[in-house]
Amino acid sequence: MFSRLRRSYDRYWYAWAMALPVTLVLLVLVGYPLVMGVYYSLTNINDLNMGRTIGANHIPASFRSVGLHNYGYILSGGDGQFYQTLVWTLEWTVGCVVPTVGIGLGLAQLLNRRLRGRGVYRVLLILPWAVPSFVAAFSWRLILNSPNGLLDWVFTRAGLPAVDWLGSATGAKFSVILVNVWIGVPFMMVAFLGGLQAIPGELLEAAEVDGASPLRRFLHVTMPGLRPVATTVTLLGVIWTFNQFAIIYLVTAGGPGGATNILVTQAYNDAFSQTRDYAGASTYGVIILSMLLLFATFYRRALGRGQEAAA
């Protein structure tokens, strides 16, 4: 046993030494806070009982363990917002990822051909990605502002009723999805363009010679070729959207009345707005992370099975 350890040390010490700095940093900066976060979720810590030092006086921490009470409270719907927020978080994720991937794929298809002004279109279509997302959020607030914003102006000119975009629950939900899709499409488009260009031209030519219609060429040659890119960007898109903080926080701040709060912004509000309920926020954090891990595991497994079937 000991000699085996010794031998593996002799063989691997170089690799371990090179991986050591990262491991240490992750242990200190991620591992320790994560453990603390899980611990906080089992206590009743808040801003008042966490202990503090004012001048020379040190007030000791007085929070205590409450076991799984926080989880029971939240998962049983006791805080009156968890399930409502969860449903909207799922709607938000699907509502953002599906159009983003769809429009991105569509635009990539349109751009992936000989076309006058292709370069100009490409630059213009990528523009939303080049704008930092916090700037985009502020800019869209200006446009969605009612009744004097640009969007309402366009609506009234088109003979449609003006909409209170950020003031009503439905309007605000639509608005944050709109902004997030606007920001997200260019990444998907560029990723799909790369994927399309990696599909060998001979394959499409062969299909064309065989008389396959454009639709069938797309379904049977292009789509299988795009599979690796599509699965990757969909996974990234889901994770990014599920965790998206800046857009919701800056465009609606979760409002009106918490209607657009997703789980992440909800936890943030619990921790840092009026109540400063650190324990509740930590519990939310642990629940969110567990859901993401579950999702990623299932996604990878489903993917693995799919690839085996295809191969």
Partner: peptide, 9 residues
């Protein structure tokens, strides 16, 4: 993948 909410507190 860690959401902000896990580590921020």
């Amino acid at each position: 993948m860690f959401p902000v909410a896990v580590l921020i507190v």
